[in-house]
Design a protein around this nucleic acid. Structure first.
Lengths: 215, 215
DNA sequence: TGTACATCAGTGAACGCGCGTTCACTGATGTAC
DNA sequence: TGTACATCAGTGAACGCGCGTTCACTGATGTAC
């Protein structure tokens, strides 16, 4: 139709945005390019002016989602610090909230794509790992002031992210069938993490190890 | 072809077994019924003698996987107890092992379907919740002897499962692109859980809460 | 600054293909007598 | 116990459909002169 370069770049972004939302909600295999193009406001033919293939789009979607997710995370850290709040506490509260559970399409892409990424193309998988690595660094930086164990902040960031993402996915997995259980999952994860973040409190003791192996 | 009732029931089980493996590996949308029937050793036409629809098969697959997974869990508990080992410790070691990460098709169905179940049919989602509930009870029973916090074992079971499943999924998500990171994820989760299960150890302090909110 | 034309984003129909599902058929199983 | 026949699991071709991708075309953009 004749379109300026700026307009074309903007249209490309519209396709990625529509794909991000639809892919997270219904899965990459659950969304066709005709529907996707329509959702972005176009007819399907022009798709290949922007992307070499559907797989190429998938990679662009994950890359873009990781960038936006990382920027949002950085923004949340900054605004918590500006208010004098603990950024880690703020991050955990947001991550394990019912609002975040509902906002699959604009939520954290690490959890949003965690279950699917294994089966996506190489470009998407590499973008995911790059995003994970970057955000792990960001996460590590807000749990810096740990005591007792120097150099273990990265391990702590990984474990904490695993727990939060696991609880979020599990809660999303059951929310439709059993909303009460879904809420309980978020609550239980929040509780355990609070115990972790407040050492010395009675809640620290979570499991008693019997080490029966030795006798 | 004329087939005995026993043979027919066995064939039905063969279809479910083939579907379980293929669905976990490639996703429900990634496997067609022709391929699936062939994998089970049949031509595609007979499929509808056993299942009303693909969705009906998916529900049967999740149900069956939950049953087998639950039985396997119960078996692992029993054999650990027979050897005098702590069943919780044994469960955690197995769950966060590289072997379990590789065995997607015979591994824990709670993590195996965790990322997909949201988008599957109602029957599958209900079977998943039923299996989760049952295994949460089983899990709770092996962390019974906790101290200090009566009545919180269920919350602890949920949090622990969230963490293990989250770490396993994340490790599986990246293992192809960055095997070192994938191993580090399992190791970090194991480490944090060890800290949880051995209270009083210096590793208990994972994150220092600054509670800046109050001043 | 004004005209001529190459570029290329977007259109919409078409391609071959594999999907989930249906169908008429086959023939051993297993029941009725 | 032996024969007649209804049942129904499995066959393999076919159905309409939507998939990812290609194509000839359109026409405003934006460059060359």
């Amino acid at each position: 139709m004749g379109v300026s370069k700026e307009q074309a770049a903007q249209n490309r972004r519209a396709i990625i945005a529509a794909a991000d939302k639809l892919f997270r909600e219904r899965g990459v295999d659950g969304v066709g390019l005709v529907e996707l193009s329509r959702a972005a406001g176009f007819t399907p033919g022009g798709f290949y002016n922007h992307f070499k293939s559907k797989d190429d789009l998938v990679a662009a979607v994950v890359e873009e989602a990781m960038e936006r997710g990382g920027a949002a995370f950085a923004g949340r850290i900054e605004s918590a610090q500006a208010k004098g709040d603990d950024p880690l506490e703020a991050a955990i509260d947001w991550y394990l909230s019912e609002a975040h559970r509902a906002d699959i399409d604009v939520g954290c892409p690490l959890s949003g794509f965690m279950g699917d990424i294994r089966r996506l193309g190489e470009g998407a998988r590499k973008a995911y790992v790059a995003g994970l690595t970057e955000n792990l660094g960001r996460f590590e930086s807000i749990i810096k002031d740990s005591e007792g164990e120097p150099g273990q902040n990265r391990a702590k960031a990984i474990a904490l992210l695993s727990e939060m993402a696991g609880a979020l996915l599990l809660s999303r997995a059951v929310v439709n069938v059993d909303p009460g259980l879904a809420d309980e999952i978020l609550r239980s994860a929040r509780r355990q993490i609070s115990a972790l973040t407040a050492p010395g409190a009675p809640t620290t003791t979570v499991v008693r190890r019997r080490t029966a192996r030795g006798h």
